[in-house]
Simulated assay, not measured.
Amino acid sequence: MPAETLAVIITVLRIVIAVVFIGMGVNHFVPRSARTMAAMIPPWLRPDGRVTPLTLVYITGVCEIAGGLGLLFPPTRVIAGVALVVFLACVFPANAYASTRRDRFGSLAIPFIPRLLAQIALAALVLAATFL
Rank of each mutant, 00 (worst) to 15 (best):
60 T>Y: 03
60 T>W: 01
55 T>M: 15
51 V>T: 15
55 T>I: 15
95 N>K: 02
61 G>C: 11
34 A>I: 11
75 P>T: 03
72 L>S: 02
88 L>N: 07
61 G>V: 08
17 I>P: 00
39 A>L: 06
96 A>K: 06
25 G>A: 09
108 L>D: 03
14 R>K: 12
69 L>K: 01
96 A>G: 08
89 A>E: 12
47 P>I: 02
89 A>V: 12
15 I>W: 12
97 Y>W: 09
12 V>G: 02
18 A>R: 00
31 P>A: 06
48 D>M: 13
70 G>N: 04
16 V>R: 06
17 I>K: 04
89 A>C: 13
100 T>M: 15
25 G>Y: 04
35 R>C: 08
62 V>R: 08
70 G>V: 07
11 T>Y: 13
56 L>W: 03
67 G>E: 05
34 A>W: 05
54 L>T: 09
40 M>F: 05
30 V>I: 15
24 M>R: 06
63 C>P: 13
52 T>G: 09
30 V>R: 06
109 A>W: 05
107 S>W: 15
35 R>F: 11
22 I>K: 06
102 R>S: 14
82 V>W: 12
70 G>M: 06
13 L>E: 03
110 I>R: 05
23 G>D: 09
77 R>G: 08
14 R>V: 01
91 V>H: 01
104 R>V: 14
39 A>I: 03
18 A>P: 00
37 M>T: 01
88 L>D: 10
48 D>W: 08
30 V>C: 06
65 I>H: 03
35 R>A: 13
87 F>C: 02
46 R>G: 02
103 D>W: 13
99 S>L: 08
77 R>Y: 11
36 T>C: 07
73 F>E: 03
107 S>E: 14
88 L>T: 06
89 A>P: 12
42 P>I: 00
101 R>Q: 13
30 V>W: 11
20 V>Y: 12
59 I>Q: 13
114 P>Y: 00
97 Y>E: 01
77 R>M: 10
28 H>M: 04
107 S>N: 14
90 C>I: 12
45 L>A: 04
89 A>K: 05
87 F>E: 04
40 M>H: 05
60 T>I: 07
102 R>A: 15
113 I>L: 15
27 N>Y: 11
85 V>P: 05
30 V>G: 05
109 A>I: 12
52 T>D: 09
14 R>Q: 01
12 V>F: 08
80 A>M: 07
89 A>F: 15
80 A>T: 04
14 R>T: 02
52 T>V: 11
77 R>D: 04
23 G>F: 14
98 A>W: 00
66 A>N: 08
50 R>H: 10
16 V>Q: 09
61 G>A: 09
65 I>M: 13
